[in-house]
């Protein structure tokens, strides 16, 4: 079970490597990746330094180029592929068929992984990318139960990577337009969900209001925690009932089912959070390193340690965690 950890800058990359990641994934400073946030990500020099640091310690580096180029700007994504290929990265994480087609034509020896943004939720969908572009791994969207993941892992032509911890997209990745519907910018084409420039917080008589491009996402009382206003974590009125109609502010945590994921043949587990701090990356990576080692040493006896769970809960949205779609009753 490979542990794949996020890094939004060089310090986070070093934190992940030092805390026991097997691989670290990073992105360029532009809309070619799905964490296109101000001040985040790597320039060419930092990528070279990061790869040198990781490789010296036996850790692999993946570069995510996992958004969708539009007419007129494909060259930017192609340039990103060229740059990534020249850095000596161990794999590129791609989503767009056109970008994969380019990578396969010009860099036939590159290791390609299918990004979660590619929305492949079956062995047939994965087989498409394997046959057409020779992908070596597929990252599954967070919409499948453990049983469904098991069936896919068994029949997939390439190894499977699943999400283990972090912010939870409840919609199938790569096909959620909620952010672009409200702001004009979303994960697929712009590389960010609910971009900060559209977010407005205001104090009112009825509490703190959070708005996204003018749309009221939530109204928060003084004694409540205010989460970042992504549309799927807001409170709305449905059938005269106000509440979290889509999902509460919460984070995914798979520690309770880690031995199941190992047993069904999941090859790699991914930690979400390139936008998080080096300290966050270090803590989560450390917990998962310890958990995976414990699980692999004796899968039958594996139990998540209370200390690990407490550490992760403290780092989670709304201080609560969920198994998400892995657990059918969540669905």
């Amino acid at each position: 079970m490979e542990l794949v950890c996020p890094a939004g800058n060089l310090q986070s990359l070093k934190a992940a490597v030092d805390a026991g990641a097997n691989s670290v994934y990073i992105g360029f400073r532009d809309e070619t990746n799905a964490r296109h946030f101000a001040g985040l990500n790597f320039n060419d020099r930092q990528i070279a330094q990061g790869i040198e640091y990781a490789h010296a310690r036996g850790v692999r580096v993946f570069i995510a180029i996992n958004t969708y180029p539009q007419p007129g700007n494909l060259a930017k994504w192609q340039h990103a592929v060229d740059t990534a290929a020249n850095t000596g990265a161990d794999a590129l994480i791609l989503a767009d068929i056109g970008v994969m087609d380019y990578a396969t034509e010009f860099w036939p020896d590159l290791n390609l992984h299918l990004s979660v943004q590619g929305s492949a939720t079956s062995q047939d969908a994965i087989a498409f990318y394997a046959q057409q572009f020779g992908i070596k791994r597929a990252v599954l969207p967070r919409v499948l139960s453990v049983r469904q993941v098991a069936a896919i892992a068994k029949k997939s032509p390439v190894p499977i990577e699943t999400f283990g911890f972090g912010s939870l997209c409840v919609m199938v990745e790569g096909r959620c337009y909620l952010s672009s519907y409200v702001t004009g910018q979303g994960p697929n084409m712009y590389g960010a969900c609910s971009p900060a420039k559209f977010v407005k917080w205001s104090e009112t008589d009825v509490g703190t209001e959070t708005r996204l491009n003018g749309v009221l996402i939530d109204r928060i009382a003084d004694d409540e925690n205010a989460g970042y206003p992504t549309i799927c974590k807001g409170r709305y009125c449905v059938n005269d009932d106000v509440g979290y109609a889509i999902e509460e502010p919460t984070s995914l945590n798979t520690l309770p089912i880690l031995s199941d994921l190992v047993k069904i043949g999941v090859a790699a587990i991914k930690i979400e959070g390139r936008q998080r701090s080096p300290a966050y990356v270090h803590r989560v990576t450390s917990v998962f390193r310890e958990a995976i080692d414990s699980c692999l040493a004796d899968p039958a006896a594996y139990r998540p340690d209370e200390k690990w769970l407490a550490t992760l809960a403290a780092l989670s949205e709304g201080a609560q965690t969920t198994l998400g779609a892995y657990n059918r009753s969540w669905q």
Binding site: R142, V143, L144, S145, V170, M171, V172, R175, C176, Y177, L178, Y181, C232, V238, N239, D241, A245, I246, E247, G324, A325, R328, S329, W330, Q331
Partner: peptide, 20 residues
């Protein structure tokens, strides 16, 4: 416009029942 798909059924959630 169809804007998103999920593993979770939100109609069932509004009725406080699970998809199954």
């Amino acid at each position: 416009l169809s804007l998103a798909y999920s593993a979770r059924c939100y109609t069932a959630r509004a009725h406080r029942i699970s998809k199954d």
